[in-house]
């Protein structure tokens, strides 16, 4: 009859830890992805790359099970009724960002695109901007749970990095299409660049929604 159990605080704490772990997974996936791309540019599909790609897959699996646990617990324990829907949406969007990291890393592994050394620096710059975007998204989400006014600061950074990544992507695409590469090769590289830039776009969408939740929570 009493849905409020004595152990509610400990259950709440467990759920808090799970949400924190989910946010950690975004940061982890961004860092491993950055490292993986760096390894790929140097060694292409080496054993080291294979390991890093597998690591991202494991992170993605862990994030999936965390998402399911968070969803189940929020509903089973009837927690935060007014924000439950928003939190579920947020967790699902965060999961999509991790999925995208995994997909792109896997695509590198399968397709093994040839990236000429003259593009390496710009490519690293793009990946760095995209990863910064995801990391700031994780920090903004963490702030949403604990320190509401700070969310805006991180959101500003996400927007800035996303904008920068758009510029870098455009520059790279221009260089690729101005080059003497085969059209098929150009299109393959263009598709890769778009895939990487999509991660920043996902983070931006996620932040847009998060800012609406902030307004909702503040009133």
């Amino acid at each position: 009859m009493f849905n409020v159990k004595l152990s509610l605080f400990s259950q709440t704490k467990q759920l808090e830890q799970k949400i924190d772990a989910m946010l950690d997974k975004i940061i982890e996936s961004a860092m491993v992805f950055k490292k993986a791309v760096d390894v790929y540019l140097k060694e292409k599909r080496s054993d080291a790359y294979r390991k890093l790609s597998k690591e991202i897959k494991t992170i993605e699996h862990d994030a999936d099970s965390l998402r399911r646990e968070i969803e189940n617990r929020l509903y089973a324990q009837n927690l935060i009724p007014d924000f439950r829907g928003n939190i579920l949406e947020l967790v699902e969007n965060l999961d999509k960002v991790i999925n995208e990291f995994d997909e792109v890393a896997h695509q590198f592994y399968i397709e093994q695109p040839e990236i000429e050394p003259k593009y390496h620096d710009k490519f690293r710059e793009l990946v760095g901007q995209v990863c910064d975007c995801a990391e700031n998204l994780a920090m903004a989400s963490r702030a949403f749970f604990r320190d509401l006014p700070v969310v805006r600061d991180y959101a500003k950074k996400v927007y800035w990095y996303e904008h920068e990544s758009d510029k870098t992507t455009a520059e790279l695409k221009e260089c690729v299409f101005d080059s003497s590469l085969e059209l098929a090769h150009k299109l393959q590289l263009e598709s890769f660049l778009s895939e990487v830039a999509d991660i920043a776009d996902l983070a931006e969408n996620c932040i847009d929604q998060l800012l609406i939740y902030v307004i909702k929570r503040d009133i």
């Binding site: 709440t12 927690l79 320190d147």
Partner: peptide, 24 residues
């Protein structure tokens, strides 16, 4: 209360649990 929750950085879930208990 709004000021308190701004200054006191307690997790949203913990706030929910405190409010629930206080309501009871």
């Amino acid at each position: 209360m709004r000021r308190l929750f701004h200054v006191w950085h307690v997790h949203l879930l913990r706030q929910d649990a405190y409010i629930r208990r206080s309501l009871i």
